[in-house]
Design a protein around this nucleic acid. Structure first.
Lengths: 224, 224
DNA sequence: CGACCGTTTGAGATCCTTCAATACCAGTGG
DNA sequence: CCACTGGTATTGAAGGATCTCAAACGGTCG
């Protein structure tokens, strides 16, 4: 399984987590996390940091009455950047069976303290994530259901460019709904509408083919 | 005016920006930014970093049709952490006449590269902000108008504890609306309702007294 | 004073949610 | 092989929270 640790390539950011974490591989422990199992729960003590070697992870928060918000999705190669606080403020769960690499907190902290270049790279990663988070606020605060789905799909297409424009959506409709601040029904309705309009195709439940990428981009900003 | 640079104390985070930036004061330039004037615009080249010495700043994004989302507010002492990208992805504007300190990018970059401790502190700041951003996603994606206002007010009260619970809201109702993903009218209506219920008082347009803090906290999670 | 701008309040419209029914698919056991 | 079952997804109809449009209010500044 260890060879999987260095197998990923497509990162969400321009940074290379593999380079960045190369000096940590000595301390890393890789494990398999089953579908819907948690990497950690909100309230848990921060024991270390996780990287998705292969699979998919959602980071979410639950309100007392059960309402849920998915703050972010992580795919192959992504480092789950957590706060420097004592306890986790969010729950991380595997969307599908995933290979997860764990780095003890002490190792990361030591490296951050001693290696300015490493700290710089982590900082860059954190700033990129912060920017993405702020962009997502525009989605949640100001966009219509159709614009939200268009933003989600075109963003996904941009991050995971595929030869035939067929990309996989490992997460369920509920996950998408909770990520976009909508209900499952609305997500389903809008996807059906986009399909009817010929903007996308839905070969199977976890696949989307973006037929008209430009149109999708326009829709994502309400310019269609 | 230079003495103002070191005057602030109440930070949003547990880090001390003043300590952190002490070694940068040599390169810093302080200036006055008028009410509603921009520190920088979306699309501008990132020339450096800004810190609010005294005053208040909003960071926001505009959609093509004029819809606006305020991603964050910055108060006395806050460092406006920007991405390491070439251009600004958001616009920063002064909410009131503000004293703003500017640090050239080269100086910060150099320090980040050379001083692991400094980089570590910036990283901590970035992670804190990231966490706040994720929390705001819950607000924007899943909370009702009443819960949003309650969250905003109790969060503000927690960050700016005042002896008589009288805190200032320098931003306009529109700013609050654009921060919470609501309309001005809804913000106004909910504030009136909270006032009627005796949870808050509104001595003047830019002041709020939190009468029942516990109730507000409960309301912010939909447990009232 | 009077114009202006931001805020508050009211009434009707709308988009999304809620509730409900149906469809679909994989797995299981007869 | 097929019926059964549980879970997820889709589709429909009705309701509701928030938005939109509109008017009144209130403070500020010339």
């Amino acid at each position: 399984m260890f060879d999987l640790v260095c197998s990923s390539s497509a990162s969400r950011t321009n940074l290379a987590p593999n380079d960045m974490l190369a000096s940590l591989e000595h301390y890393a422990r890789t494990s398999l996390v089953k579908h819907d199992a948690a990497l950690f729960w909100e309230g848990d003590t921060v024991a270390g940091y996780y990287r998705v070697v292969h699979g998919a992870v959602r980071m979410c928060k639950l309100m007392p009455d059960g309402r849920r918000q998915v703050a972010d999705f992580f795919g192959d190669g992504d480092l789950i950047l957590v706060e420097f606080s004592e306890t986790h403020r969010f729950t991380a769960e595997a969307i599908v069976d995933s290979v997860i690499c764990f780095y003890p907190r002490s190792a990361i902290d030591l490296l951050v303290q001693s290696d300015a270049r490493f700290a710089r790279q982590l900082l860059g990663l954190a700033c990129d994530r912060l920017m993405s988070a702020h962009s997502q606020m525009v989605v949640l605060g100001r966009k219509t259901a159709e614009e939200r789905l268009a933003t989600f799909l075109s963003g996904h297409a941009r991050r995971h460019p595929k030869p035939n424009r067929l990309m996989s959506l490992p997460m369920s409709r509920i996950d998408i709904a909770d990520y976009l601040g909508l209900t499952v029904e609305t997500v389903s309705r809008v996807l059906s509408k986009l399909k009817r309009q010929g903007v996308i195709e839905l070969p199977d439940i976890h696949s989307v083919r973006v037929v008209d990428c430009d149109q999708l981009e326009l829709m994502s900003e309400g310019e269609a």
